[in-house]
């Protein structure tokens, strides 16, 4: 997997090969791994947060109204959220193209 961020020279590589910026994997979008996306039916959603709790990719964020929404930059489309939703409020929808 080519990674343009990883193009470093020996003079510019970080000391000891340490990564000094915490959590910078967020710069890497895993959303394009996805073949299906979760869509939440807000009518059914009870804002319990199970989708957020059971997401292995830290994609869900709670909005001001208390609904949880998946960030498509990162969502890999695994479908755990839809499978675990106690109210069947989440549907996995195939990505186009």
């Amino acid at each position: 997997m080519a990674n343009s961020d990883a193009i470093v020279g020996w003079k510019t590589i970080t000391f000891g090969c340490h990564i000094l910026e915490p959590g910078n994997s967020a710069n890497f979008r895993t959303g394009d791994w996805r073949s299906q996306r979760p869509v939440t039916d807000k009518e059914k959603c009870i804002k319990c947060g199970m989708c957020w709790i059971f997401c292995p990719d830290m994609t869900y964020k709670q909005d001001e109204e208390g609904y949880f929404e998946a960030d498509m930059e990162y969502c890999k489309g695994c479908g755990i959220c839809a499978h675990e939703c106690p109210k069947d409020a989440i549907t996995m929808v195939p990505e186009e193209g």
Binding site: N27, D57, Y74, K76
Partner: peptide, 22 residues
Amino acid sequence: SMPKEELLAPGHRACQGCGEVL
């Protein structure tokens, strides 16, 4: 009242549906 802070950032390369990273 689960802690909101994520100590692990998104963008990690775990497989889809990885129970281990979860």
